[in-house]
């Protein structure tokens, strides 16, 4: 079967470069076709890459605490660009400091993310979720 295609990257002005490399290798090893946009990725870059590669999911990483601001409007822009219903995940240290995760999760879900992952989520958990959502066995 054709590999499912992911677009991943660290959003905004965030330069934390290590985690996304680990995710790239983990997702590739798990059998996905991964386009890694690296760090400092704008919303437009995710969308353009997803369009051109016909991606099945966009996975947003944010570590420096400004994730909430950076992610606002991404779902709307995806819809606008023709990526109707594309799977959207977000994870890392997506907000400043220690806030109750349940509340954070709700806020990001309201923004249109399909899944929201808390700090320190191991790649295996995300991979299992991807396989479920994209119906890969």
């Amino acid at each position: 079967m054709e590999k499912k295609k992911l677009v991943i990257g660290v959003i905004g002005a965030d330069v934390h470069a290590v985690g996304i490399k680990i995710l790239y290798h983990a997702f590739t090893d798990a059998g996905f076709d991964v386009t890694n946009l690296g760090v400092m990725v704008s919303q437009e870059e995710y969308i353009e890459a997803a369009l051109e590669t016909n991606a099945d999911a966009i996975i947003v990483s944010s570590l420096y605490g400004h994730g909430e601001l950076d992610c606002r409007g991404l779902r709307d822009k995806c819809e606008e660009a023709g990526l109707k219903g594309i799977l959207l995940y977000v994870g890392g240290n997506i907000v400043v400091g220690k806030q109750p995760f349940e509340e954070v999760k709700k806020r990001f879900e309201a923004m249109g993310f399909d899944r929201v992952f808390g700090p320190g989520t191991p790649p295996e958990e995300t991979i299992a979720a991807l396989k479920e959502d994209l119906k890969v066995d």
């Binding site: 054709e2 295609k5 076709d33 369009l51 051109e52 590669t53 016909n54």
Partner: peptide
Amino acid sequence: TGGTDGGNT
């Protein structure tokens, strides 16, 4: 042109 290999057709 258009689409990466395996991308948008």
